[in-house]
Design a protein around this nucleic acid. Structure first.
Lengths: 213, 213
DNA sequence: TGCTGTGAAGTGCTTCACAGCG
DNA sequence: CGCTGTGAAGCACTTCACAGCA
């Protein structure tokens, strides 16, 4: 646990909001803003001012009373607190349309989340070269992960193959999974799975839309 | 409001879980399962059995006491309740790497969320043809949306252009936005914005990872 | 004075526990 | 007898309100 952390339990929602704060703070930094107080920051993020202050208080005291928060310093404080101020090595399982899109999406690398290995179970794809990486057989993930200290496994297979991909990732000793496949996967307790689910959002939009007619 | 709805307020979290239930129910249907009771369904979704029953109860009574839920019927009941059992027309703003990836991602069309118009502000992209659609100038979105009853605007621009894209979408009278850009956007109260934020998930993974060392 | 940091109060979602029905 | 549907209890997060510091 980071030495700076003040509380033992931190709400999951807090972590997700910290990611939003970073987004907004980076936009402020781009616009040349040096200092921001909790209320305007909160408004730009669509939350309450106390919420921002409480979220930050879980990790330390980053503000100056009567003034606010230094934008650049707060970005560094948050990314440091979350552990995202360093490189993270990821392996991508599934190099179809979705997988290639993820590979092409420069934002990941720009934020230190580097895809260093590609895996697929399709013999026609194995051996192919993408973005300077050779597609390997998923069976080889275990050795690769051990040799290269892979920390995050990214699933980008069709839904019916997501569980098998998860099995290979777990088997390789990787404890974090980012799943882009539209399927839930079963994993041991110790493995943390995050789901990127486009349809969750589309369903919310559709429902809100018909509800407010 | 759908006639079947039993309660006036439905938690946002419930809607998001319903999307998960559909995912898991579809996987069960693929495996030939005909009937499922709340506890196994809940376990596969990573939630509590009462939660499943309560979520469904907001919309009606879909189960049979002593038996469980018919898988196919429950999928239809949920998708109907949420209004996702029909076609939704979407316009995509921003046809860079991310936008093209969204356009190529067949799942959207497969679930009735159809991209029927492409827009970009880059003169070099305007006029280009992608997936049988001609890229138009973002200024033309307003007329296009009115003529074609676009219901959802999808933002896939770089973060610094997300706000302008949102402005065009709002201006076109569209009330729902799906934002893939890593930036928050300001919109009038009546407009519903959903954010697809990959980094929210990566931040959660990274934090959980260092927290459990 | 202005804004942060924080205990206390408020709110809403989740879980429990069981009545009710097939 | 088994599982759904649901009021009540429990719990966690959010918001309030203000003490405390620059």
């Amino acid at each position: 646990m980071p030495a700076s952390m003040k509380s033992d339990h931190i709400p999951r929602a807090t972590i997700q909001r910290l990611a939003i704060y970073v987004q907004v703070l980076e936009a402020l930094a781009r616009d040349g803003v040096k200092v921001v107080s909790s209320n305007p920051l909160a408004e730009a993020c669509g939350v309450n001012g106390s919420q921002v202050r409480k979220d930050l208080a879980y990790f330390g005291e980053f503000g100056t009373r009567g003034v606010g928060y230094n934008v650049e310093a707060l970005i560094r404080a948050i990314t440091r607190s979350l552990g995202v101020d360093r490189e993270w090595k990821m392996a991508l399982v599934g190099v179809g349309n979705l997988g290639r899109a993820i590979l092409n999406h420069g934002e990941f690398r720009a934020r230190g989340f580097n895809i260093i290995g590609l895996f697929d179970c399709d013999p026609f794809k194995i051996g192919e070269n993408m973005h300077g990486l050779e597609v390997k057989c998923t069976e080889d993930l275990k050795d690769f992960a051990a040799e290269n200290q892979v920390e995050i496994g990214v699933i980008a297979t069709p839904p019916e193959r997501a569980q098998r991909a998860a099995g290979h990732i777990v088997d390789a000793g990787i404890k974090s999974i980012l799943n882009f496949a539209p399927a839930r996967v079963r994993t041991p307790e110790r493995v943390h799975v995050e789901y990127v689910d486009f349809f969750r959002h589309l369903y919310s939009l559709a429902f809100e839309n018909i509800r407010t007619d």
